[in-house]
Design a protein around this nucleic acid. Sequence first.
DNA 1: GCCGATGTGTTGCTTATGCAACACATCTCG
DNA 2: CGAGATGTGTTGCATAAGCAACACATCGGC
Lengths: 183, 183
Amino acid sequence: MAQSKTDPRVIRTRKSIMDSFITLSETKEFKDITVKDITAEAAINRATFYYHFEDIYDLLEKALSEVLLVNLDSAVYENRRLDEETFTGIFEAVTNFQKAISHRCHSGYEETIARIIREQLEVIFFKLLSKQHPAEKAQTLSLTAVMLSWGIYGASVEWKRNAQLPPEEFIKAALPYIRHGLD
Amino acid sequence: MAQSKTDPRVIRTRKSIMDSFITLSETKEFKDITVKDITAEAAINRATFYYHFEDIYDLLEKALSEVLLVNLDSAVYENRRLDEETFTGIFEAVTNFQKAISHRCHSGYEETIARIIREQLEVIFFKLLSKQHPAEKAQTLSLTAVMLSWGIYGASVEWKRNAQLPPEEFIKAALPYIRHGLD
DNA sequence: GCCGATGTGTTGCTTATGCAACACATCTCG
DNA sequence: CGAGATGTGTTGCATAAGCAACACATCGGC
């Protein structure tokens, strides 16, 4: 509730730029997408791009964060509790995201994407934990969220390496331990 | 080739307003759509609406003209000649248009819509005639276009009244006479 | 009657976006 | 090597779009 509503032009323009970037990324790899490509696709001025984003790496982060955030939010949706179902949904969202972008970033972006995923996971875990344990110290919740995000991300990497099971089966093995720890 | 490119913001905003109007008209009748509805749907400011359109009737005309124009253009597409196929396509576009908006304007707009249709028909006929008879005087071509547009519109009214045949069959009866006159 | 609620246009000022030009960096080709 | 072509970021100024407020009209209910 901090900022008193943002200008609709800003919302439109940012969305247009991000959408164009996602659209282009279905054709080209990230490294082959230029700022000119994006502004041409979005039919906005190049100066306007730099009004909203530092550079194309900034856009990459914000666009991917946004996509992941939407997936995570819809995975959590009504389940405010951090239960097994929510965990499974979150893990599926992460693996879907990884699959979706695996074709588009053949080199050099792995660590960036890893960080994006962990950051978004941390945010959502912190929110869920705060609801579930309102009395707990913020520092404790924050640290727990950090550890969970690293853990889930690590599990998704492991899943990618030898994916015999579907994600929801794969993560099932870990759930009792996570829950036990949480409870 | 007169104006040296229009501002992309203008194109976006006009399109957004017209699209919103068309979208709303799928739910409500024309007479129940307010300027506020449109600007809310389009997420633009009301003052911006009045920057582009006189009032809601102005929008009605421009939006419907645009829709019809697109249909007509795609009906004509590559056939630059005003032959039987083109005529049939144009007639179909008109009847489709009439069908599409017949649910949305229960009262009071019939004459407006009739004029829109005739105006657009006149424009497209004049263009086609000019290509086909470049040597002819503009006044002659213009008058021919006027008469054709009234004629085709009248045929569409007649078709609506007792529509036993599909449009392309219905218009077939008139084609020889039109062609004979044109040739 | 008159009141509040809702819609229409308009206005002055602020802010976001467009545009053209610039300096700089790569890169490629001869 | 040098010259052209392409991409990046930045700047100053022009214009479209946002916002809040206003006056006015219409309508339905008390």
